[in-house]
Amino acid sequence: MLELQILLVFMIIGALIAVKTKDLLSSVIALGTVGLALSLAFLVLKSPDLAIAQLVVEILCVIILIRATIRKDLPFSTSGRWFVNTLIVLVFIGVFLTFGYFCMKDLPRFGEPEMRIAQTFLSMGLKETGATNLVTSVVLDYRAYDTLGEATILFTAVIAVLAVMRRVGRKK
């Protein structure tokens, strides 16, 4: 899986540029490259549904973030305890990485998943639901309550944006 590692290194470089650049518009565009590389990684990992969804969602996300970037400049101030704060954050991330590396030894090895429920889905899916795309049969038949929750969250998000953005009721 050399191509997967190359894609991941590309994503890490893009994320570093997105974090470190001073110009906000360049930073948003670097985030867009990370999302497109993630779409390619999904395609390498044999999941074309997610590749399509990630591609179109990334385009819409970049449109929204470019609209939200009203001022491009980023004032850089070294006032306060700049050095101490950065040191504390880096030490915390180092501890997190160390414990994460030891926890990874208990995971199933890459390429050999434990598929207890999924074995049932794979063998019985076509007979029980009639859909040839197994991801759709899991989303809309076996685990349809997840989709119901997703619809609720989307509805709540739209109502929240409406409530934040409206002007009526504020002038008296």
Binding site: P48, D49, A51, I52, A53, V56, A131, N133, V139
Partner: peptide, 11 residues
Amino acid sequence: HGHVSPGGGFA
């Protein structure tokens, strides 16, 4: 064509 090929309601 979401149930016979990649895609679906979200995308």
